[in-house]
Amino acid sequence: MGRLRRTAAAGRPPDDGLTVTIQRGDPGARTGFRVATFTPMTVLDVLLAVQREHDPSIGFRFSCRVGMCGTCGVRVNGRSVLACQTPVPENGEPVAIAPMAGFPVVRDLIVDTTPFWDEWRRVTPYVVPAEDAAEPARIAPDSPERRAIDPSLDCVQCGVCFSSCGIAGGSRTFLGPAALNRALVLVNDSRDTATQERLDLVSGPDGVDRCHYIYGCSSACPKGLDPAASIRRLRRGR
């Protein structure tokens, strides 16, 4: 159990706790809370504290707590983030938590991520090997292929980029930054044989032409990926 910080120094959360506002689905549900803080504290800790001590009916998703599963995406003070990776602001300013934008809301902070997965599925997001491929595939770690793929590989499909895009969340046809990033990774993979289908898809009306250079994706990615760069590289082919 965390220790309450008893300091009156300027810029710390007040002794009676951090002010937290949580967007709820039910109009009668409580939205304002004061949460006792400890250090270090993440937004996920705040949500768990609210659920444990204030209102057990609050709805949110989480799983691994360490930024690997991509489940806990929420909007904190307007920015889409992973709750388990976002520290509470140092200066004690209030925290407003809302569901990720661009997805239908199921309840409170839980969103339906189907739009994200629909687009993800469209780029055939796995290697399609040749029937007669030599086993095992030999690809040197320092090959040009690996150097092209490695910066874009750690996607946990959390949907934060999709939510920050500004286009993907509204349109039901734009592939979105995550799917395009994955498409680039697989297009560069020498074991894969579905390259042409993916290239046709990304150069079609739902692909890179729909990106409007907002860079919301790259600025929000909690794993430090750069989908905007992947999209530029896919466009470069022209």
Binding site: P144, E145, R147, A148, L184, V187, N188, T195, Q196, L199, D200, V202, S203, G204, P205, V208, D209, R233, L234, R235, R236, G237, R238
Partner: peptide
Amino acid sequence: PDQDTARVRTARSGTY
């Protein structure tokens, strides 16, 4: 790397 630019070069778009 030249390898991936060579392959991606087939993506074209009249609109763009």
